[in-house]
Design a protein around this nucleic acid. Sequence first.
RNA 1: GGGCGAGUGGCGGAACGGCAGACGCGCCGGCUUUAGGAGCCGGUGUCGCAAGACGUGCGAGUUCGAAUCUCGCCUCGCCCACCA
Length: 855
Amino acid sequence: MTTENPARPAPAERFDPRTYESRWRERWAADDLYRADDADPREKHYLLTMYPYPSGDLHIGHWYAATGPDIVARMRRMQGFNVMFPMGFDSFGLPAENAAIDRGAHPMEWTQTNVDRMREQFRSMGCMFDWSREVVTSDPSYYRWTQWLFVQFFKAGLAYRAMAPVDWCPKDQVTLAREQVEGADRHCWRCGTPVIKRDLEQWFFRTTRYADELLDFSQIDWPEPIRLMQTNWIGRSEGAEIDFAVEADGVAPIRVFTTRPDTIFGATFMVLAPEHAAVAALTTPARAAEVASYTAAARRETEIERMSAERERAGVFIGAYAVNPMTEERIPIWIADYVLPGYGTGAIMGVPAHDERDFAFATRYDLPIRYVVLPPGGTAPEGEAFVAHTADEVLVDSGAFTGMTASDGIAAITEELAERGQGSSAITYKIRDWLVSRQRYWGAPIPIVYCPEHGAQPVPEDMLPVLLPFDVDFAPTGVSPLQSNEEFLAASCPVCAGPARRETDTMDTFVDSSWYFLRYCSPKEDGFAWDPVTVRHWMPVDLYTGGAEHAVLHLMYARFFVKALRDMGLLPFDEPFLALRNQGQILGADHQRMSKSRGNVVNPDDLTGRFGSDTVRCFLMFIGPWDQGGPWNPSSIEGVHRFLGRVWAAAQATTGGHPRPIPGMPADAPGGFPPSAGEVPGQEMAAIEGGIRALRHATHLAIKEVGEDYAAFHFNTALSKLMGLTNALGDARDAGLAGTAAYAEGVDTLLLLLAPMAPHVTEELWARRGRAYSIHQQAWPDFEPALVVADMIELPVQVDGKLRDRLLVAPDTSPQEIERLALASERVQAYLKGRTPRTVVQIPGRLVNVVTPGG
RNA sequence: GGGCGAGUGGCGGAACGGCAGACGCGCCGGCUUUAGGAGCCGGUGUCGCAAGACGUGCGAGUUCGAAUCUCGCCUCGCCCACCA
């Protein structure tokens, strides 16, 4: 059985990536191979992958995240684009400060050490990062401009200071943005400690001003889940604000927000948040003690405690009454912590028949429940709220509005209230302004000074940066460590030059990352945050990749920044990132997130030491769909390494067998040989030419499919197709075709298509084949459409949808001929049992289905 | 509780509504080797000697034809969570 296929000879030289990988990386660096030129006239392509926090060592997840976009960047470059693919470090942040507290290392030094180490580790991956554009956010040359941008936001009224109840992490001793509080137990995103609320004077960015525009994704190609998460986070609700007069002298009417103004005839009570401003004035003396104790308890409770009482829906009657503007009924006013102070107006009308929470509350306190909207059937449910909202529900017991559909009722009631001056349609959002101040050291100081005379004043732009002092006390006390440095504190007022005190809070690191993609365009610019001309050239980012965990943090803040800067006249576009792709997460072998404390972190250095970077890159891309990730399981890395070994052998086996020219290819093409037809017997000649056609078909099909797969981030299937081409080259060698031009074309194509994924071995083999340096500067191959189509196709023949036979036909065989051949099949006849088929379904090039009269 | 996504061999995973399991791992057999390893060749969904039958979480439906579309259920993952 194996006599016709003698074992292929082992390659003359062993495949050992260690002998050439670092040599090529040094050459590429020395030649500045990956530097993107601002003035290059070719079409630009800005490809960006999220920069890392310099936590210490690069782990396998960084490799996974970076290799995908690197492949696409390399292909785009070969396709003729002027590609920029930069990298940097998000180097401000809490871990550096914690290292200082735990180990006594200064954050500045700790960060610098880590950045240096990780930069070297990044280089070992062989990515085409343009290191000449590196950005390090903790460098004064960077945060000077972060501060400058803060000042611009301040001047534009988009940065403001306010006393607010804020989420506070008791362990890290720091305030958190709302987006940084996670999970049902409301814990800190970084350390997992449950957060508490504190009232503090804090800095905010006015993200709410852009809520509506942030909901518009029409200009960008982003994954649906990310768009949904942002949409839900912004949480736009349409409804109405309605004023309810109160029975108390000198107290203004109370305004509530509702999405269901059509249910107003069912409003039988009112609930205020315990924090509502009117509570004090409205509470009657008889109820004062109970109200005070409830309010105090609510204030003391943490978010988790509120959650644990979730179904309680407890509240207190404050003794006062409001008037339902439609029914003119007196309704009691309660306070309850299920009404949130920060959403809507902090007050609701209680409509127990049509809201589950109101229903639970009314049931508990025996308040009236009145159904005013009924389902089309016309019967109110017993013992539960009817909350569905469809177009054909009907209003009942609603005065002049009775009989209207719910959607007509919303419009008509809102209009009626507006005419009376008691309400208007309104839109509310869940999104809050972005809390940006942190009581921490290792961040960009907020460039504000406080003058006893002139209040908060921005530091003049020519006095930036406000440098972080080196000597401070890092102990987490809840106040900014910068307060421990007297020299830093002392400042002068920019207005009166009198003594002033410097702001000691620093900025959330997400401020740094909201504009780093702009800085990459002109990283050395020192007269401005960026050079407007080069920013206009490179921006927006054409393709951004990173983890989906940033859906409502970084990705929303960056959009907000760009829109705000556009409105200040600083940027000429609306969106930072035109397309977005999310990679999956590589989990530990135990299916848990990789972390040092779990001891499941995979160190890429061990793997590259054994197999080289190319194997690790290919293996990571071969695991599965890139956007899916998965648990770490290195069992098949050997298989990928073997594949590169087969490429190694294939590319160097260029002699032997029958040298044949390719029809239509010049005889002097690389690997071409003069015709020698007379030397070969006719039958063998036909076999050789069939083999050549098959190989060229495999080659050109690979060009088409691998390119499409790379562009779609389907790296796993791209690699399987490259394996297929490699196997086809092996078959060609077995058939004695190693010396043909078709074989040379196949090898060159294989190397070019593999170059983005395995940059080192392809460069080495390209050089060994005597081709011009560098393979990474070659043009991406084009396929010939005629060769993508196979000579003969195998057509499955079904009877009643079940596979019964196959036809081998030329692709251009007529449907009539195919039907004739299918019906002539013995196997088909056996199933037809002499009957005439009811119909024959044909999908051109795909299959034939013979449908029997019974089928 | 709400939203989104995913369930396919022993494993990772392929498959514009059209041949289920590409490609690879593992395993079995062979060649080579003093041996081991490496490399190479062949086989490998399940049941069955075979013919064949059965197979994509479970149950219905649409269709000539469903892993793929629709409905219901189960399991897992992620996000949000008293948002009026």
